[in-house]
Amino acid sequence: MTDISAPPTALARPARLRGRGIADAGPVAGGLAALLLAAAAALPLLPGISFYYLQIGILVFWFAMLGTSWSVAGGYGGMHSIGNATFVGLGAYTSTLLYVDFHLTPWLGMAAGMVVAALTALLIGYPCFRFGIRGDYFALVTVALGQVAYEVANGATAITKGSQGVPVPYAATPSALDFQFGNRTQFYYVAMAIWLVTVIVAYRVRRSHFGFQLLAVRDDEIAAARGGINAPRRKLAALALSAALTASAGTFYAQFILFIDPASVFGITLSVQIVLMAVLGGMNSYLGGIVGALILVPASQYLSTTFAAHPGVDLASYGVVLVLLTIYLPYGLLGLLRHAPRWRSVIGW
């Protein structure tokens, strides 16, 4: 290669050119985050905490997993999918059917579901990225994918039992191998653990060179190609990873609720909720999912109990929130921090 750089000169070093990620948080903010995590872990140990609140806690972690998984493709890679329920459903159905029909432990079923979801993502992503379908058009493709998946799950009754759904049989004695636990507290910790893994994966991806290139592809595919980046390949990898992470949350849902049907795991409502979590929290950040879920899950629980006599009010409120967000807070809550270099680095903007 040609040497095109000037001789090394002594340059002022005004600041680190690249942030150090969470290491930039400093002792105070870092300590506070650790404290919050400890508090979340201690929640089930509170004397007299009701079933209801633990359930909400589990749902917060679940939606946070989904929001963060969405962000890996949607926030980092600019692939705004409105069909991620497809991957939730594939994860839930794969592990459940393998468990019901072949007595395969749902942990292996989870891995199988992740593979199935990733392959589906590749199948959809390849023609899209090969032929330059991006932005709004890609979002439309994912809506269609969601609808097709929903109809297939409904129609393929021989495999899925259709709209009747599939109950997950109780194990004679609840065991971790069967992904069944005696009480909600244990489920709470499992949810927290899976959420933590999702966040760590998303954070590591963001800090990696691959993640860096993915952001470049999101911003300008042509400029990325000029720099030698194979944009379609990066997008495919991100979409497959996002789908696999999403599918793991699907398995968790099936084992937690012990019943799945197409409406609950393949429905477009779920797809929209997932997007909302990420958008409200800040879709570019690996923490967007948890921030969004911490607000939206309790809010929706409150609305649905308060307006129990008027079903649909809670869902309609999602639409209102989405419209307000796109107008007043397009970068989400964490996006408010993006111009402060230190916080930008911490939240992985």
């Binding site: 290669m1 860096f212 952001l215 999101r218 911003d219 300008d220 190609a225 000029r226 720099g227």
Partner: peptide, 29 residues
């Protein structure tokens, strides 16, 4: 992107960079 790897690189008349990355990250990538 393969042309780029051969060492042939261009700029665009209408500038193309990565607006969502910082100035430094535009190079560090």
């Amino acid at each position: 992107h393969q042309v780029s790897h051969r060492g042939l690189v261009r700029t665009f008349q209408l500038t193309r960079v990565f607006p969502g990355l910082t100035v430094a990250e535009n190079l560090l990538v």
